[in-house]
């Protein structure tokens, strides 16, 4: 079953130099494990392929039901050097939520996931 991240999580993003961080927070506590399993570095790297120049790093915050992603090389140099409209990575958050996850039907039903 295909499930939109927009229906599973909320998010906020910011910058550190040329790196954008995206914190992804499960809308329900029971969906956090699904994000841990499905929203992998590999999936996120493919999603942002061609948009960021560097690697993706992921950290887990089970206490907040959140994952923190660092997207390196995301901001055309960042800060004042960047020519981008989103030089500070403020809306990488919703770009992340465009992601659509493939979830086994049984899991989707068990977790009550809203499907596309």
């Amino acid at each position: 079953m295909r499930v939109r991240m927009l229906d599973l999580a909320h998010a906020r993003s910011g910058d550190k130099g040329d790196t954008a961080n995206v914190g992804v927070i499960a809308l329900r506590p029971e969906w956090y494990e699904l994000l841990v399993q499905r929203l992998t570095v590999d999936v996120v790297s493919k999603h942002f392929a061609g948009i960021i120049a560097g690697p993706v790093v992921r950290f887990e915050l089970p206490n907040l039901g959140a994952l923190n992603f660092l997207l390196h090389g995301a901001l055309d140099g960042g800060g004042t050097q960047s020519l981008k409209t989103d030089a500070q990575g403020k809306v990488f958050s919703t770009a992340m939520l465009r992601l659509v996850l493939e979830v086994p039907d049984a899991d989707a039903v068990r977790l009550g996931l809203p499907q596309v």
Binding site: S13, K16, G23, L61, L70
Partner: peptide, 16 residues
């Protein structure tokens, strides 16, 4: 709790 969580992850690096 969700509004505070959003701020906690803002500009976060390694949370540890």
């Amino acid at each position: 709790v969700p509004s505070v969580k959003e701020q906690l992850v803002y500009e976060m690096g390694d949370p540890h």
